[in-house]
Amino acid sequence: MNEGQCVALFHSTSLALRGEKLCRAEGIPVKLIPVPRRLSSDCGVCLRFAGAFEERVRALFNERALEFEDIVCL
């Protein structure tokens, strides 16, 4: 299991905000942060969460058809 931090990258802030809502509704602690410089992304914010939630977040986004660009674990 990944013990570090992961970020989900989105094409737009609207999608990132939707991701934040979906995660919070499932009790997954997340935080919107500016996209780390070394990661390429389309928009200014991404969603950070603990690596332990990586699979749950990925499954949740797929299940709810939330389009995301990538999930990168640091």
């Binding site: 737009s12 802030t13 609207s14 905000l17 939707r18 809502k21 942060i33 500016p34 200014g44 914010v45």
Partner: peptide, 21 residues
């Protein structure tokens, strides 16, 4: 909203998202 990554920009984005919802 949606132009910068700082907390106030995120908060502005959230206002608009909440309005969409």
């Amino acid at each position: 909203p949606g132009r910068s990554g700082h907390r106030l920009s995120v908060e502005a984005g959230r206002t608009i998202y909440d309005a969409r919802e």
